[in-house]
Design a protein around this nucleic acid. Sequence first.
RNA 1: GGUGCCUUGGAUGAGUGGCUUAGUCAACGGUCUGCAAAACCGUCUACAGCAGUUCGAAUCUGCUAGGCACCU
Length: 294
Amino acid sequence: MILYVLLGPTAVGKTEVALQMAEKLGSPILNCDSRQIYRGMEIGTAAPTEEQQKRVRHYFVGTHDIGSYYSAAQYEQDVLSLIEELRGEHRSLLLSGGSMMYIDAVCNGIDDIPSVDPEVRDTLRNRLINGEIDEMRNELRMLDPDYYLTADTRNPKRVVHALEVCYTSGRPYSSFLTNERKQRPFDIVKIGLRRERAELFDRINRRVDAMMAGGLLDEARRLYPFRYENALNTVGYKELFRCLSGEWELPFAVEKIKKNTRDYAKKQMTWFAHDTSIQWFHPDEALSTLNSIL
RNA sequence: GGUGCCUUGGAUGAGUGGCUUAGUCAACGGUCUGCAAAACCGUCUACAGCAGUUCGAAUCUGCUAGGCACCU
C-alpha cells in the first residue's frame, strides 16, 4: 500500500489538487489539518465544503468539539488505525494537509510518552500563570539534566511539557525519547505544492478578504464564548476576538490575520524545506505531472 | 525674489555633542518528539549631500539639493 501525502503551505491550493488526486486514486481524503478537525471553524480554516465532501469521502474534518483535547500523538494513532481499516479495499490512500507536526507523526512517529495526568497539567499550568517559570526551569534541571541542556528553556511550553512528563511518570522526560523513526507497514510518497512567495502571499491576502466576505466575523462571534479553548488559539479567530472585545478595530484585525497567516505559511515552508523526500510541484502543474506517476 | 521651518534604516517615528544599538510596523532567517494555525529564538546598526568647528557630530556652523509654510 502507498500513502500519498499531499502537503504545502496554507492557501497554496491543496484542496482542489487533493480532490482530483483522490478521485484519480479512488481514495478518500485523510485530512491532516490540526484545526479543520474541529467542528464550527469551517470558514476560518477553509475547511472542505459539503459539496467537496460529497465528491470525495473525507476523514478528520469537523470530528471534534471545540473544547476537546487532541494532539499529534492521538492523530498518529487515529490515522494508523484508519489506514489498517481501509487498506483492504485501497491500494493507495491520500493524506492531505499542512500541519507539519501531524504529518511528521504519521510518517515518522512520535515516541511513546506517557499521557499526562490532568491534575499535573493543571498544577503546572497554574504555576506558569503565577510566574513560577524560573523555579520550574530549575526543577527541570534537577529532574532531567540531559534534556535541560538541549531544550529551548526560554520556551515555557517546552519546559512545562517536559515537567509534566517527569512528574506523571517519575522518570526524566528525555528517557522516553528514542530518536528513532518508526517503521510503517506502507510506503510513503510525499507530494509538496508550492508557489512563488509573492503569488502565495497575494492568495493569502485575498483569501482572508474572501473569508471576511463569507462570514468569518459571524463565525468568530459564535465561537467567542469558547475563545479560551486551545482550538481557538488560531489565526483568524484570535485576532477577531480582540476585535469583538473592543481591543482592536476591525480593519486592523483583518490586517493582522493576513500577516499572521503569511507568517504561518513561512513557518510551514521552513519546516518542509528540511524534508528532502518531498517532490515539489506548482499546483497548476501538479495534476498533469502526477498523472504519469500515479 | 524674501523670511521661517523641515529632510533619520523598506515604512513610521523618538533622540540631541560622546557609553554599541530607541521603539513600532513590514521584511527576512531559524527552532521544533503530546494542545503545533501553538510556543520560542534570531537578522536588518540609519541619520539628504558636501565642507567645516571639535579630542569626538545624526546632534553645532556654512553651502548645495529636495520639501513645506508664510510674505511680496
